[in-house]
């Protein structure tokens, strides 16, 4: 199994840390992982993206142009990465702020209202975990228990009290993801 993922959105949405949690969860499952961010001026206030690969085998290129899964969190990233999903692949997006919805018919498309749901939970900082939950529901590459183990291992002790909140956000995302079909 090799899963090649691009996560793309605005700087500040937690794109990079979501990728890191995914990578850490892969390590917890004894898998190979890579995490390659876009870095540089484009990250400051502009778009941010990260390529994450989780695999049972040694990972070759950490930099890719086509992906099994694209997780898209703003319009610029939709314009850039909708076409980068492999035929038969998966596109997961938050419709908040999206004016041109994905139109491809050869891939599976899912929506998650991460911005709305995290605002309703009263904490927009857990937005990325809602998105992660939605992804885990439609493509269970990493198990919830391994995400939690990864968080415990990667977060300093003083933040461990926030883990239950993150777990709730993941479950919320899992429950609310819906498949959509382009018109």
């Amino acid at each position: 199994m090799t899963e090649e993922i691009i996560i793309a959105g605005f700087g500040g949405q937690g794109v990079l840390s979501m990728g890191k949690i995914l990578a850490y969860s892969g390590i917890m499952q004894d898998q190979e992982v890579s995490w390659m961010p876009s870095y540089g001026p484009e990250m400051r206030g502009g778009t941010a993206n990260v390529t994450v690969i989780v695999s049972d085998e040694r990972i070759s290129s950490p930099i890719l142009t086509i992906f099994d899964t694209a997780i898209i969190l703003n319009q610029q990233s939709m314009d850039k990465f909708e076409k980068s999903v492999k035929p038969g692949g998966l596109l997961l997006y938050d419709p908040n702020g999206i004016t041109r919805h994905p139109a491809r018919k050869d891939i599976k498309i899912y929506q998650i209202e991460g911005a709305r749901l995290s605002a309703e939970m009263g904490n927009t900082k857990i937005f990325n975990m809602v998105i992660l939950g939605a992804y885990m529901q439609v493509k269970p590459i990493v198990l919830l228990e391994n995400v939690i183990r990864g968080l415990k291992k990667s977060l300093p002790e003083r933040y461990h009290k926030l883990i239950p909140l993150n777990e709730d956000a993941i479950r919320l995302g899992m429950k609310n993801v819906t498949e959509t079909v382009p018109a």
Binding site: P37, Y39, P62
Partner: peptide, 10 residues
Amino acid sequence: DGVIGQMMEK
């Protein structure tokens, strides 16, 4: 190089 320096792996 910038790729190996910036990427994360196990």
